Simulated assay, not measured.
Amino acid sequence: MTNTQPPRDTARRIQDVLGRLDEEQDIWVSTADTAGEPYLVPLSFLWDGTHLWLCTRLSNPTGRNLAANGRVRLALGHTRDVVLLDGEVTTLGPEQVPVEAADAFHKKTGWDPRGSGPAYHWFRVRPTEVQAWHEEPELVGRHLMRDGVWTETAR
C-alpha cells in the first residue's frame, strides 16, 4: 500500500506524534550493551507530556542496558508510518517513581509494576530527537525535535 496523501507539515506531524504517544500502549525499545550488542523489545509506556515512562526488570538485558548507557531509541508504528525517538534515560528504583507517574502508567496500561516486586525499575526517558514520516515523500522535514526542542512550537 502506498500513501497517496500530500506530505504533512511540521505542525501536523508534531500533533500526530503527540497523539500517538497519548494513545498507543506499546513502544519498541532499542538498546545496546557496553560491547555494542543490540537488543530490541516492545514495552508498555506512558507519555506524561514531557517524558516517556517504561518499566522492566533491572536484571533483563533491556533494563541493564537502559541503566548502564543512559540512552535509548524508541520506535512507534510500522514501516510506512514511522516515529523514532532518541532519548536520555534516568533509572529509578521502585520506591523512587513519582506516585502520579506510576498511577497514570497503571491506568493507561492496566498493569501496576509496583505489585510485581523490587526487581522492576522505572526508566524515565526525556526525548532529545524525534523523527516522523509517512513513506519516502515525507523524509524531507522528518526531524521534529533536535536537542530536546521541537522544531516548531505550534502544537
Rank of each mutant, 00 (worst) to 15 (best):
residue 2 T to V: 12
residue 40 L to N: 12
residue 106 H to D: 13
residue 74 L to I: 12
residue 53 W to E: 04
residue 115 G to I: 08
residue 120 Y to D: 09
residue 102 A to Y: 02
residue 154 A to L: 15
residue 139 L to Y: 15
residue 60 N to L: 14
residue 93 G to W: 08
residue 121 H to P: 03
residue 59 S to W: 08
residue 104 A to T: 03
residue 50 T to A: 13
residue 92 L to D: 11
residue 132 A to H: 07
residue 50 T to R: 11
residue 77 G to N: 12
residue 28 W to E: 08
residue 93 G to S: 14
residue 101 A to E: 10
residue 3 N to L: 03
residue 56 T to W: 01
residue 2 T to K: 06
residue 40 L to V: 13
residue 123 F to I: 03
residue 155 R to M: 15
residue 91 T to Q: 12
residue 125 V to Q: 01
residue 53 W to Q: 06
residue 115 G to D: 10
residue 17 V to T: 02
residue 77 G to C: 13
residue 94 P to M: 04
residue 20 R to P: 01
residue 83 V to M: 06
residue 62 T to C: 12
residue 51 H to A: 08
residue 20 R to F: 00
residue 8 R to S: 09
residue 143 H to A: 12
residue 94 P to G: 09
residue 30 S to N: 07
residue 124 R to Q: 10
residue 130 V to F: 00
residue 42 P to Y: 03
residue 52 L to W: 05
residue 136 E to L: 09
residue 116 S to P: 03
residue 110 G to A: 05
residue 22 D to Y: 04
residue 153 T to V: 15
residue 66 L to A: 05
residue 77 G to T: 14
residue 36 G to Q: 04
residue 96 Q to Y: 00
residue 43 L to N: 03
residue 107 K to F: 11
residue 11 A to K: 11
residue 120 Y to S: 02
residue 152 E to N: 14
residue 128 T to V: 14
residue 28 W to I: 05
residue 124 R to D: 02
residue 58 L to H: 13
residue 63 G to D: 14
residue 71 R to Q: 15
residue 102 A to H: 02
residue 36 G to F: 05
residue 121 H to Q: 05
residue 141 G to Q: 07
residue 115 G to H: 05
residue 60 N to Y: 13
residue 24 E to P: 05
residue 6 P to H: 02
residue 54 L to C: 12
residue 110 G to E: 04
residue 126 R to E: 13
residue 53 W to M: 09
residue 107 K to L: 13
residue 137 P to C: 07
residue 41 V to I: 14
residue 137 P to I: 06
residue 31 T to V: 04
residue 125 V to W: 00
residue 50 T to E: 15
residue 43 L to C: 07
residue 103 D to Q: 11
residue 128 T to W: 01
residue 31 T to E: 09
residue 99 V to N: 05
residue 149 V to C: 10
residue 5 Q to C: 07
residue 131 Q to I: 10
residue 75 A to L: 13
residue 92 L to Y: 02
residue 29 V to E: 00
residue 106 H to C: 07
residue 59 S to T: 15
residue 94 P to S: 11
residue 46 L to R: 04
residue 88 E to F: 10
residue 115 G to N: 05
residue 66 L to P: 03
residue 126 R to F: 06
residue 29 V to P: 00
residue 152 E to D: 15
residue 142 R to L: 08
residue 108 K to G: 01
residue 29 V to S: 00
residue 113 P to W: 02
residue 33 D to V: 00
